[in-house]
Design a protein around this nucleic acid. Sequence first.
DNA 1: TGATTTCCCATGATATCCCATATGAACCCG
DNA 2: CGGGTTCATATGGGATATCATGGGAAATCA
Lengths: 157, 157
Amino acid sequence: MALFVSTYINKVDRKGRVSVPAQFRAALNIPAQPVFVLYPSFTLSAIEGCNVDFLEKLADSTSTSFDLFSTEQEDINTLIFSVSHQLTCDPDGRVVLPEEIMAHANITEQAAFVGKGKTFQIWEPEALKAHTAAARARAMQNRPQISLRASPAAEEK
Amino acid sequence: MALFVSTYINKVDRKGRVSVPAQFRAALNIPAQPVFVLYPSFTLSAIEGCNVDFLEKLADSTSTSFDLFSTEQEDINTLIFSVSHQLTCDPDGRVVLPEEIMAHANITEQAAFVGKGKTFQIWEPEALKAHTAAARARAMQNRPQISLRASPAAEEK
DNA sequence: TGATTTCCCATGATATCCCATATGAACCCG
DNA sequence: CGGGTTCATATGGGATATCATGGGAAATCA
């Protein structure tokens, strides 16, 4: 089962290639040629990444005959599948990030791969820092008793 | 399994030929000669596309659930099957789009192939832009939770 | 035979493959 | 315990393959 953990910052070379972290490639569990899907996050300046299985399941669930012609399903399909990209790692474990989603996440020189359990995200490293700080601030506000026990750097991964 | 994702804008040449995106041809998974079906959408100014399997399933589901909405099922049969065209890519991966459906979608110089999961659509690029913007507006306004659910990592606050 | 469609080849741009190198971690062995 | 070595990974660059596209030749049809 795919499990994406930890954060890796890799370089985007002149050709736009970036190494997918070896641990992530392993998590994609198609030994020879890891395949996955990327799409821009709806709510964040980041790229969402997931297994192909996930999108296939979604495709199944949104193409039953009765829903086929509903505006709602049509919109969901439009907003997800049309902006997704199916990618395959090259023999060295790299991929070329598609233009649009690189622009969406403001990625130019470096890409931060962030494990999210069953999925992962790709961030511009500075944007990731800001996002992480904001998330921490929210967590402290919502659960003050946790922040009291935690030392300032303890939740750093 | 066929999965159509991403959006590709290709040129319609003087003979009316268009390259079917290589990824879509692969998704049609009949390696030598990709076969698929096109029909005009009856709700949108677009062309609907799918592989033959999908249409066969649609035929099954519409004929077995005649007890509900029987006139609608009848209409669907009429509106889809009677106006469908089965096409085969030429050796270079191109097809000639039939007159009627090209007119239906107002396609002249460029054709945007849009992945929809198990199916795809073909749009005139400008019309596609407008449709996408409208779909996004509807999704945000009506059911924000749907778009959030659809994104595997988007439950992040 | 004339018109239309399909096939075949050429081309430029781009993406992919393959090899080489650098870095660092784990390992082995003296 | 230390030094060397092997391995996996990330990264760079040149060579090769793929793709979209244009145009001409062959085949098809009426």
